[in-house]
Amino acid sequence: MTTANTESTGVPGVIEPKIGEELLSVEGLVKHFPIRKGLLQRQTGAVQAVDGLTFNVTRGETLSLVGESGCGKTTTGRLLTRLLEPTSGRIVFEGKDISHLSEGKMRPLRRDVQMIFQDPYGSLNPRHTVGKIVGAPYKLQNVKTEQGTKKAVQELLELVGLSPEHYNRYPHEFSGGQRQRIGIARTLALRPKLIVADEPVSALDVSIQAQVVNLLEDLQSEFDLTYVMIAHDLSVVRHVSDRVAVMYLGKIVELADRVSLYEKPMHPYTVALLSAVPIPDTKRKAKQDRIRLQGDVPSPINPPPACRFHTRCWKAQEICKTIEPPLVELAPGHRSACHFPENATPEQEATAQAAAKEDPATSKQNPAG
């Protein structure tokens, strides 16, 4: 979570503020995976994994992407780290457009943008020792350390809660939590500015999850890290996030700070997700209304027109089938893409509907609007 930090610019007497500056900006990000059939492999359709995301990430904060499986969270993370090439849209990192940079031009930026993978078993090469795995970034980026790579790796292992003696061991000798710590150590080797964490604790036991989450928070405070956290566990998200973006079928349907989103969610999909979060207090649990969405998530190959959630929404009306609601700010820092937002005043609801009719992109896609 965000703390007040500053960093020296290298110029005597000049201190550069860390918090509040925009580190990453995403505008209209799209990723469609083509579907090809036949002998000539002609394109017959496309999987619309990510379809028009716009958001920004400021230095030192944690932005979490949440949603059901298949909503495009992991694809978004791979786009941000340029492990995937965007179909369209812009990704701007520290003022530089990295959307379509070649591999050669992206190589220096790999120092600043790193990723923690979901599977601590599949993300480590079983044939390499821990020392070789964690030291790989130094070799790939040709980075020299003062006391040698081995010493630097051993310091990283200590930093993430492992022993320097683990340097010569292999991944199969460690538990799941320890393997994830090894992956985190590898990610930290080049002191990145942005880390995309793809469900870093979902494959771990509950008893280990809290330890890894606390480790990530400690590292953020110590190294002024910025996180884009991908998760489906809303309890974990509430603990680590500054802001939360809720995704559904490749689109962001709600974006707000943590407190506002959990206490006063505005999009019906967010309300349904939060109603499924387990509550340990039996008295509070009895008062909670569990919302069970009807039907399955539509296919991203042929998503519903206009509002993509209208096929499962209990508040859907005709306008939801003809006009796509834009992601509009209904309260300070709280954006929602819904014609009939929950927990909203009549003025906020009127603002949402007026914005949909005035939005040029919406009107173009939906002539009925």
Rank of each mutant, 00 (worst) to 15 (best):
residue 5 N to T: 11
residue 7 E to K: 15
residue 8 S to T: 15
residue 8 S to N: 15
residue 9 T to L: 00
residue 16 E to H: 10
residue 16 E to K: 15
residue 20 G to N: 11
residue 24 L to I: 11
residue 27 E to G: 00
residue 33 F to Y: 14
residue 35 I to A: 05
residue 39 L to K: 14
residue 45 G to K: 06
residue 46 A to Y: 04
residue 46 A to C: 02
residue 48 Q to M: 01
residue 48 Q to D: 02
residue 52 G to F: 09
residue 53 L to P: 02
residue 54 T to F: 05
residue 57 V to N: 12
residue 59 R to T: 14
residue 59 R to V: 13
residue 60 G to M: 06
residue 62 T to N: 10
residue 62 T to Q: 10
residue 63 L to P: 12
residue 64 S to A: 14
residue 66 V to P: 08
residue 67 G to W: 10
residue 68 E to P: 12
residue 69 S to R: 05
residue 70 G to N: 03
residue 77 G to V: 01
residue 78 R to Y: 09
residue 80 L to Y: 01
residue 86 P to W: 07
residue 89 G to R: 08
residue 94 E to C: 02
residue 95 G to Y: 09
residue 97 D to Y: 03
residue 98 I to N: 03
residue 99 S to R: 03
residue 101 L to Y: 03
residue 103 E to I: 02
residue 107 R to E: 03
residue 113 V to Q: 11
residue 113 V to N: 09
residue 117 F to N: 02
residue 118 Q to V: 05
residue 118 Q to P: 03
residue 122 G to F: 04
residue 126 P to M: 10
residue 128 H to F: 11
residue 132 K to Q: 11
residue 133 I to W: 06
residue 133 I to Q: 01
residue 134 V to G: 13
residue 134 V to H: 11
residue 135 G to K: 07
residue 139 K to V: 15
residue 141 Q to W: 10
residue 143 V to H: 14
residue 145 T to H: 10
residue 147 Q to E: 13
residue 148 G to P: 01
residue 148 G to H: 01
residue 151 K to Q: 09
residue 154 Q to E: 15
residue 155 E to T: 04
residue 156 L to F: 12
residue 158 E to N: 05
residue 159 L to Q: 14
residue 159 L to Y: 05
residue 162 L to H: 06
residue 170 Y to E: 08
residue 175 S to W: 12
residue 177 G to H: 07
residue 177 G to T: 01
residue 182 I to L: 09
residue 185 A to Y: 09
residue 185 A to G: 09
residue 186 R to E: 12
residue 192 P to C: 09
residue 193 K to M: 02
residue 196 V to R: 04
residue 197 A to H: 13
residue 198 D to Y: 03
residue 203 A to N: 13
residue 210 A to G: 01
residue 210 A to E: 00
residue 212 V to I: 15
residue 212 V to Y: 07
residue 214 N to G: 07
residue 214 N to T: 07
residue 215 L to S: 09
residue 216 L to W: 07
residue 217 E to G: 10
residue 218 D to P: 05
residue 221 S to N: 08
residue 229 M to K: 03
residue 232 H to N: 05
residue 236 V to F: 15
residue 244 V to A: 12
residue 245 A to H: 09
residue 249 L to H: 07
residue 250 G to S: 07
residue 254 E to Y: 01
residue 257 D to M: 11
residue 260 S to A: 13
residue 263 E to M: 00
residue 264 K to N: 11
residue 265 P to S: 09
residue 266 M to H: 15
residue 268 P to V: 04
residue 269 Y to V: 02
residue 269 Y to E: 02
residue 270 T to E: 02
residue 270 T to N: 04
residue 274 L to N: 04
residue 280 P to L: 11
residue 281 D to N: 14
residue 281 D to S: 06
residue 283 K to I: 05
residue 285 K to L: 00
residue 286 A to Y: 08
residue 292 R to H: 05
residue 295 G to R: 07
residue 297 V to W: 10
residue 298 P to Y: 00
residue 299 S to L: 02
residue 307 C to V: 02
residue 309 F to A: 00
residue 311 T to Q: 01
residue 321 K to G: 08
residue 326 P to M: 14
residue 326 P to S: 11
residue 328 V to P: 06
residue 328 V to E: 10
residue 331 A to Y: 08
residue 332 P to H: 14
residue 332 P to N: 14
residue 335 R to N: 02
residue 336 S to I: 04
residue 337 A to E: 00
residue 339 H to Y: 04
residue 350 A to I: 07
residue 352 A to S: 13
residue 353 Q to G: 10
residue 354 A to H: 14
residue 355 A to L: 01
residue 361 A to Y: 07
residue 362 T to V: 13
residue 363 S to Q: 14
residue 363 S to P: 00
residue 365 Q to P: 00
residue 368 A to T: 11
